[in-house]
């Protein structure tokens, strides 16, 4: 599910491009560590409408075998999927519990 991207570190003024620019992609940046609340899908209740997948701003919800799946490496726990789910099958649980 997760493929690490290329990370380039700049160590001195000589290495820098003229403008602060990302090089490669941001998949090395695990924003999932920012999360306080973890959304959990109850697949018994889920109707596979993919509304959570459409609304996820990151996007940290992807589709696997025609079902939505949350990528916890990148999900920041914003809760938009929890609010938008029409059958209320996504629960929000505190991290570390």
């Amino acid at each position: 599910m997760f493929k690490p991207g290329k990370k380039i570190n700049f160590n001195s003024a000589k290495d820098l491009p003229p403008t602060p620019a990302s090089v490669g992609d941001m998949t090395h940046n695990f924003t999932g560590s920012w999360r306080n609340l973890r959304p959990i899908i109850d697949y018994e209740k889920c109707i596979d409408c993919m509304i959570c997948w459409k609304f996820c701003p990151e996007p940290a919800i992807f589709i696997e075998k025609e079902r939505p799946k949350i990528d916890y490496y990148f999900c920041k726990g914003c809760g938009i999927c929890v609010t938008e789910c029409p059958v209320k099958c996504i629960a929000f649980e505190e991290e570390g519990k």
Binding site: F10, S12, A13, L16, P18, T19, P20, A21, S22, V23, D25, M26
Partner: peptide, 23 residues
């Protein structure tokens, strides 16, 4: 693809200013 002008942490922000001044 690149993203321009993104988050630049204290470890490298000053080097951009150094290069700007030298230019």
């Amino acid at each position: 693809p690149h993203a321009f002008g993104g988050l630049t942490a204290p470890n490298i922000y000053m080097e951009f200013q150094y290069n700007h001044h030298n230019a």
